[in-house]
Design a binder for these strands. Structure first.
Lengths: 333, 333
DNA sequence: TCTAAAGAATAGAGCGCTCTAATCCTTCTC
DNA sequence: GAGAAGGATTAGAGCGCTCTATTCTTTAGA
């Protein structure tokens, strides 16, 4: 009942264990006679190589570890799919782990991933401490997605949040808006670039930036709306650039609750173009990041390090695009 | 630069490798003197046990493999979180893999998972062939979530879709609806129970069931609406029980497009209570499954098998609850 | 016919760990 | 002070595989 091992296959095929190993690894220096015998024996026994024993003996790994800070964020899931596709093409297998946006849990998850001695690690928007990242980077190639670092042993893949935010501002200005608020992403690692891009773009247009503290959740988006429109004095914005799509959805709900129509009274732009934004019922104007490409680049960077083709860090900065849907329109007269 | 091994720690601490092994496994038969020395040495070298070598030698595994058919479905993600939490408590680590709703990819993913010789496997709503499941179940404990089987070597955790659907019908009937349609989930494995529950509940109320072929996507939901309301002859339904939340969202969009208001003109009920449904902007009446509980039960079932505490299959059928939000109301007069 | 070279197959050590059995200390008892 | 008992420690084999030599075949060349 025990699972068959290489020795079992070797015995059945009447060859040595080493030959079985060669066949399983697809070596060309094997006569087709023996190869067929080995494959037949393996099939008969239902033998499949023991991945762990294999990587232990070869001191190599075909595993790419991926730590996702938050699986509930559709953006990350799309990146994961990109990673998976690229990894499969390269003959690697992806193994995911999640940290639930908690530094402690992320640390545990990362440690668990590392205990498999993977060929490399991708951290998706980790909230981990820089120290933990430094430590992990000593164990092998490491790529950071949606987070920056100064470590030269670590590669990064980020979207150009500054340009993306500027795209949104330009779009709104073109529609005629002048009072455009930004709901900030708070401690999210991508928030800084977006905020700076927004502020710079507003200045460029000769407009006053207005950054409202918020977070990347729908609850926070709703709260920010109630705060801004609840204030007395000053004219309220006619447009909002939310920190991400979730925040935008929350904002829209809250706006409609206080009797404002989107986009007739207020325009709203999201960020990330999650599947949520695309749904007919929502139809959110938003900024799209090439998510599959993010995953692909992360894997590519990792593999370059794995193969020792590169030592210097690479910093990918991906261009975003504007996706116009139904939540933006000219401001009310 | 090579990663430290047990031998390095043993030498630095001035003890045998076996003793280091005992300390790392937390054995109580070690003097605190030696234990401290070993731990100090391990800390100094930055040693962490090599999980693969460990499980190879012990012929055991602390890995629970999880194959998720579709990470984009928030429902599964919630179950995964439940699995993760339960696994961690039991001292196991979860490793995820995804099959992208393709039988071929799922097969690859499952094989990859199995090559790690995990302690057990959870398949989340797989579209895999029954043959592949049978084969995998020979390799170790296997739990199926959101899919049924007759295999006695496999445990299952499902929600009671029939009762859940009945809950929705009862709610709508109570509001006064009599023409209630059901948008079927097609080939999704949970669709059958929901459909049967709907049909039975309608009959129980003396109403005519009306099942519309659809799928578990928003596009399909919209299409079903256009089909039903595009028909000439007969009165259209005043309420829809969608196959799941995505389908419901699509249906709502399409209804609004053809000028019908939800819930004033038509009531819509979803299924799964995904985070989507809870968002203010959507606020969907839906059926809630205890997702974290699903994950917990799956892990529990797995561990009972791992520990050899049980041989007969267990079939969990979880009760759902109705969550009333803003998409259901009495029918128009 | 003999030898060299290339190709095919294998022996055996070792990857980093666990586990069994054996050995080494203490301490306790009479 | 001898022997038993029991806890602490270690030696060494082995998990399922890969990898470096090494050996065995075969074929080609002179």
């Amino acid at each position: 009942m025990a699972r068959p091992t290489m020795t079992d296959v070797a015995e059945l095929a009447g060859v040595s264990r080493a030959l079985v190993s060669l066949v399983m690894r697809g070596s060309s220096n094997v006569s087709s006679l023996r190869r067929d015998a080995v494959l037949a024996a393996a099939a008969e026994l239902g033998y499949t190589p023991h991945q762990m024993a294999r990587s232990l003996a070869s001191r190599t790994s075909t595993v790419l570890g991926v730590m996702v800070s938050d699986l509930r964020n559709a953006f990350f899931v799309d990146v994961v799919e990109g990673i998976d596709a690229a990894a499969r093409v390269a003959g690697f297998e992806m193994v995911i782990n999640t940290g639930g946006r908690s530094p402690v849990r992320e640390r545990v998850a990362l440690r668990s991933l590392l205990s498999f001695r993977p060929a490399g690690i991708v951290l998706l928007s980790p909230v981990l401490s820089a120290a933990a990242i430094t430590e992990a980077s000593g164990q092998g190639p490491l790529v950071l997605v949606s987070r920056t670092t100064r470590l030269s042993s670590v590669d990064t893949v980020n979207d150009d949040g500054a340009t993306g935010a500027a795209l949104a501002v330009d779009h709104l200005v073109r529609l005629g808006h002048t009072r455009i608020a930004h709901f900030d992403g708070g401690r999210a690692s991508v928030a800084t670039a977006r905020r700076q891009g927004y502020t710079a773009a507003m200045r460029r247009h000769g407009l006053d930036p207005r950054v409202v503290a918020s977070e990347h959740t729908d609850v926070a988006g709703a709260k920010a709306v109630r705060q801004v429109w609840g204030e007395s004095g000053g004219l309220p914005p006619t447009a909002v650039l939310a920190g991400n799509d979730f925040n935008a959805i929350g904002a829209i709900s809250a706006l409609e609750e206080i009797g404002l129509r989107v986009p007739r009274d207020v325009s709203v732009v999201g960020y990330d173009n999650t599947s949520l934004a695309a749904m007919g019922h929502v139809s959110l104007t938003t900024i799209d990041q090439p998510r599959a490409e993010v995953g692909r680049l992360a894997v590519a960077a990792l593999l370059e390090r794995v193969r020792g083709e590169r030592d210097e860090p690479v910093r990918h900065l991906l261009q975003s695009t504007l996706v116009v849907r139904a939540t933006t329109a000219p401001p009310p007269p």
